[in-house]
Design a protein around this nucleic acid. Sequence first.
DNA 1: GCCCCGGATTGGATCGTTCCAACCACGACC
DNA 2: GGTCGTGGTTGGAACGATCCAATCCGGGGC
Lengths: 358, 358
Amino acid sequence: MERSNERAAEEERGAGGRPGGPRPPTIRGVAERAGVSKSLVSLVLQDSPRVSAAKRQAVLDAIDELGYRPNAAARSLVARRTHTVGVLLNDMRNPWFVDVLDGLNSLLQAHGLRMLIADGRLDHRAGQDFARTFQELRVDGLVVVGTLPDTDGLAEVAGRLPTVIAGNHEPRLPHVDIVANDDERGARLATEHLIALGHRRIAHLTGHGLVGELRRRGFEAAVRAHGLDASAAVETGDGTEEGGYRAAVRLLTGARGNERPTAVFAFNDISCVGALSAAQELGLDVPTDLSLVGYDNTYLARIRHLWLNSVNNVSHEVGRRAARCLLDRMAHPDAPAAHRLVTPELEIRGSTAPPPTA
Amino acid sequence: MERSNERAAEEERGAGGRPGGPRPPTIRGVAERAGVSKSLVSLVLQDSPRVSAAKRQAVLDAIDELGYRPNAAARSLVARRTHTVGVLLNDMRNPWFVDVLDGLNSLLQAHGLRMLIADGRLDHRAGQDFARTFQELRVDGLVVVGTLPDTDGLAEVAGRLPTVIAGNHEPRLPHVDIVANDDERGARLATEHLIALGHRRIAHLTGHGLVGELRRRGFEAAVRAHGLDASAAVETGDGTEEGGYRAAVRLLTGARGNERPTAVFAFNDISCVGALSAAQELGLDVPTDLSLVGYDNTYLARIRHLWLNSVNNVSHEVGRRAARCLLDRMAHPDAPAAHRLVTPELEIRGSTAPPPTA
DNA sequence: GCCCCGGATTGGATCGTTCCAACCACGACC
DNA sequence: GGTCGTGGTTGGAACGATCCAATCCGGGGC
């Protein structure tokens, strides 16, 4: 009924008339229909206790009949709050981000905030001057997930609105909180697991950036603490499957002159899968001949065909804590910057075993 | 300089004063600083040719000095356009969606539209009444990616704003375009590839929903066209790895009474990986003893360790076409609904070979 | 009977833009 | 010399909500 009237009106007005369709009902329309003033409708909308039951019902009926929806733009214009936080990430393809998003969402939603997601990689322009876009939209806060393309831009925005970095350790800026995984600790966890199984010749495949650095440091610390530095090896990878494969081939064929390691701890799952391929091509069984541990506990690791031990960096929790931080910062914009580390866990599956000689 | 002044002002005003921070500069502020009227500033903003070079420069300078950003809410309030399209998807974890998003974005961005992404699964509330949210925000259009929770809600919204469905064949609604992969054709492609290799006993692992139905139909059509119905088998899966694994075990151990198939075409990559695990556990080599083809060409298929043949449903192209459709529909809201199918391609890797007996 | 009180209701100002009609010089034209 | 553009510039009215001060109304106290 409604619908067809609307359509009819639209066609009457002349086909294709773009921006001037039948305007959506406004608060005035509702007021008129209910026989009250717009102010009273406004009161009903934010259910104030100071309206009589009769009028309230009249207004609600009118809203229903017209299919009225308050205009968020008008609302946020006067309220000077959008109830929206901007989320900037740099590769939605990475499942890790989705977990963080999920964690973020669970808390933000409970506080009546919606997320506006921008992918810096997918959306080049937004990645470049995401600052501009988010400022124009007057988001109430900003969460940067992972590494970010443009630190200067961030510094500018951070001065103007509550900002939190999730899943990365840098950059450190005056009023910007950081919530990240304790990568060094996670690497130590993984390495110590291998040591506890009896491995003595353990290798690490590295990855890029500060995170790569931290994980390597964790590995080295664990190895050193057990007096195994001499027999440990560090091989350069790049976080890709291909890189992991090549690095593993170098390690396992003794191209580096080392004795062959009995266990490998890789920078991440994907490069760990590369190492797995290399091992199988060289006729080594995992875990009988070679133990593997990955990092990130992505769904790759969960595939029964791979079934990798992996460090679970509890990204959901990172997201939740980042949301917590953002809410706090929105309440106290001038609080000193906090740096929170979330402790990862080791997820044990089928890719490690005691070393063959033991 | 700027920044520190701002901060100082804020602290002066009393710590923690939430919503009343130093208000961002408005167009009036810029006008005052540049010594012109706000109207002129507005003209400069949408670079009209009717302003003198001198004043234009003065305005631009003022904008820079103040760090002015136009308020999107105010702008869209009067323009009655938000330059935003809502995108509703139901599982961001699925890499397939990201490809569609990418395709969508490439076109929309070029037309000055930004995307507002809502994940129906991640964000339960938004999934329920995404209709409400998107209407309140007055998005200029709506793209629904994949299956959607609530068809009634969609019908309501579709009557009010340009809507396109991407990557799903239903529901069919009056003015709603559909852009989807030609699943039937893709399944035929995969099956014919196996037939061309010489396979005669081919099995299909099914998946849920209309898509599962279409892929099964494509399989059956191909098999029938070559007179192989008698030796073909269809086994119920559910699109998960576990489901694929179990179904494959049933098929390969002859639990169904069939002779063992020499090739399996799975509903999707993930269930194909399940089948791969089953094969290896049963001591069958892929592709020597058993050929496998998956669907979706996700990055799972690209892992060298798995290296699956898979039907590439060119999701990026689906996204692009959906964007095209949406732009058209925004121009002509009353055009009849179109239903476009995108032809998939078969990506050949290492998981198929001629059957063992041949 | 008048005043006051408090709950229900209302008009008008406001938010920060865009758009339109009006305005203002100033040189050209009749 | 007055009128007519015309390019540049301006004030004021939208847009659709919220919020505040003002109003209305019925009843209780004096």
